[in-house]
Simulated assay, not measured.
Amino acid sequence: MTESEFIAELTGALDGQSDAARTQIPLLLASLPDAATRLDLQIFPAQDGDGFFTVRASVDGPNLYVINKSIDAHADLFDAKYTEDGVQPPIPIVDCFDVDYPVNDIVVDCAAKWLQTVWHSFGDIKCNIPVVVVGHDDYGTVTPIELHSGAAA
């Protein structure tokens, strides 16, 4: 699979999950605890560099364990899994030894752009804390991206 084919397939797979994310994000925002000072939408690419990844929200603030537990039910925005029917949701998977492009950087960049599109589809959002897209372990070339400054809309 070429780099451009990988990007096209991944972008299509993410676009297919936009409605689910649009459903999840308002629930996530409603579950934010008062003590939260920032919401991170973190993109976790697989260590293998095969294209697998997860997008999960976390909050910053005092007593991280407690405040993150309050959003736990709504924190997973995208979570690919191996099932008996294959990878669900279906995303492109590559053998990192057979490609000459930075798979994890591409995954983070595509997922970050997807999150921006989903976020902006809401128009004005009521949220009193900053919301930032972050690539885990410094993967990605476009992150961090501030989606919301923290001022209530």
Rank of each mutant, 00 (worst) to 15 (best):
L147Q: 02
I7H: 03
V107N: 00
I129K: 09
V87Q: 07
F53G: 00
V94C: 03
V55A: 09
G61F: 07
D137S: 15
H74P: 01
D40F: 08
I67L: 06
D72E: 14
A153V: 09
V132E: 00
L10E: 07
I71S: 01
W119S: 04
V118I: 09
D98T: 11
D79P: 01
E146Q: 15
D40L: 13
G123F: 03
G86P: 02
L64Q: 14
G51K: 08
F97K: 11
W114N: 09
D34W: 01
I67G: 04
D34V: 03
A80F: 03
L32H: 07
V132K: 04
V133Q: 03
R38F: 13
V118W: 08
A36R: 00
A46S: 13
G12Q: 13
V118P: 04
F78S: 08
A80T: 05
A151N: 14
L39W: 01
T37K: 13
F122Y: 05
P62Q: 10
P89L: 07
V134I: 07
N128F: 11
K81W: 02
C110M: 14
C96I: 14
N63Q: 10
V94Y: 08
A46I: 08
P33I: 12
I43D: 05
I67V: 06
I71A: 07
I93R: 06
D50A: 10
C127V: 08
L10S: 08
I91L: 05
D60C: 05
L28N: 07
G12L: 12
A13G: 03
L39R: 01
W114G: 12
Y65P: 09
T141L: 02
T54I: 14
V59N: 07
S149K: 08
I129S: 05
